[in-house]
Design a protein around this nucleic acid. Structure first.
Lengths: 241, 241
DNA sequence: GACCTTGCATTGTGATCGCAATTACGGGCT
DNA sequence: AGCCCGTAATTGCGATCACAATGCAAGGTC
């Protein structure tokens, strides 16, 4: 691991710690790392073929974003466990911020955005049909944030990103359990219509309804006692592609 | 710098990068580092008498919390400039999350909390009287978060903390310009009364009003054209006590 | 005098090493 | 067999070094 022969020019290209960040972030959002399990810097580094240093950087970011937790006594880090309290607060925050972003995006929406959303939504429905959980979650994320980015609200956008990062493991639990087929994408169509008409209030309502439906399912799954509080084992190796 | 003779036992005591984080965080909140100016890892490290490594860790956290910005081209980091857009979004987020936290804290408030708040509020008024800007801002922060912590809402509390961190530089501009005497603490008394009565809605209104007044002043100061967009010089050394 | 070029200092990034502490595991004792 | 303790491995943290790239400034050219 970590072959020093080919020195990466870095500079303009993405830094290594950013790639590591994206890898772990993807693994978290798609649920490749189960909540409650412990991870180690060196194991992640070996997994990704880099030195522990950029992994430390990436982990710092993720801890600051509450996507990873660090045991204050052990100083060992793990994926935050899924609790009903966390879910409730994350839901509340999402229900406030994401409709707001959609409403702000509406007057700035153009045809290119709607076209882009339509393509994403087709991918989403395709993933739904074949039962591709990862594909569905990636497409869903892309759909929402294609809208949110259009709001031009940097601060709110960053907050929404942090929320999704924290709620990712919940999503995986839900869709890995209930299956993806039960979540219709009707609200996405509503949202696209509202955006096309530059109807801010309509976009707000559509996103709010979309979130409600998704969160209802999550709450049901969590309430039904999904594998939430896994005992924190150590010495666990996770494969990140 | 960095004398390796006395090896810090660290372990249970706070790690160095945490102390560095707190130092920079304090410097940002109290406005010791002006917005727009550039900072460097090595200068900060020399200032604090540590190696650049823990500074990197602390800076990563702060960048993730949007308290520091990093130029994507330069990769040089600086304090985010104060723009009206940022202020507007931060105000919106604060107006939503902080009254919510206050409302959640109300039913869980006890006499010890009210006593603690009273002490903090006395310090606050003392700072106001003598014109101690730093003391005022520290006390104000302590007052609000003594309440918010009582809400028992970890996720929302962390979001509020991030918001304050981002809005700190704005506060400094306001109070360094307008002076501290013009902001009465009446709303704090209202909030304490509501908490004593476990009146959730009263606490929500009191905090909302308190925020409104403070943000009004900030918006006025920013609109009046405070030194917002400072040109980003390099090679700047900041003294952090 | 203005503009370009060259040189040096500084910066962020990553790798490697050392250290203290915790954890895991195995052998020995009761 | 069950428990306990000692040893080895693993972990996070911090320092130092190396390197590519950028920044600034002095010196040279037209």
């Amino acid at each position: 691991m970590a072959e020093p022969k080919t020195r990466r020019p870095l500079a303009d290209s993405t830094a290594v710690h950013d790639q590591v960040y994206d890898s772990i972030r993807q693994a978290l959002i798609t649920g490749k790392i189960a909540p409650g399990v412990g991870v180690s810097l060196r194991s992640l580094a070996a997994e990704l073929g880099v030195s522990p240093m950029p992994v430390r950087d990436a982990v710092r970011r993720l801890v600051a974003e509450r996507a990873l937790a660090i045991n204050p006594a052990n100083k060992r880090l793990s994926v935050p466990s899924l609790t009903a309290e966390r879910l409730e607060q994350l839901e509340l925050a999402r229900q406030w911020i994401e409709p707001e972003l959609a409403a702000r995006a509406a007057p700035r929406a153009d045809e290119a955005l709607v076209r882009k959303l339509k393509v994403i939504d087709q991918d989403l429905e395709e993933a739904l049909r074949v039962g591709d959980v990862d594909g569905y979650m990636v497409a869903n994320h892309a759909f929402h944030f294609a809208i949110y980015e259009r709001a031009g609200a940097e601060v709110l956008l960053a907050m929404a990103g942090g929320l999704w990062l924290q709620i990712g493991p919940f999503m995986r639990v839900v869709f890995g359990r209930v299956g993806t087929g039960s979540l219709p994408a009707d609200r996405h169509a509503e949202a696209m219509d509202a955006l096309k008409a530059k109807d801010a209030d309509g976009a707000r309502r559509a996103i709010a309804a979309d979130l409600s439906e998704g969160m209802d399912k999550m709450r049901a799954a969590v309430g039904a006692g999904a594998g939430l509080t896994a005992p924190p084992p150590t010495q666990t190796v996770i494969t990140i592609p």
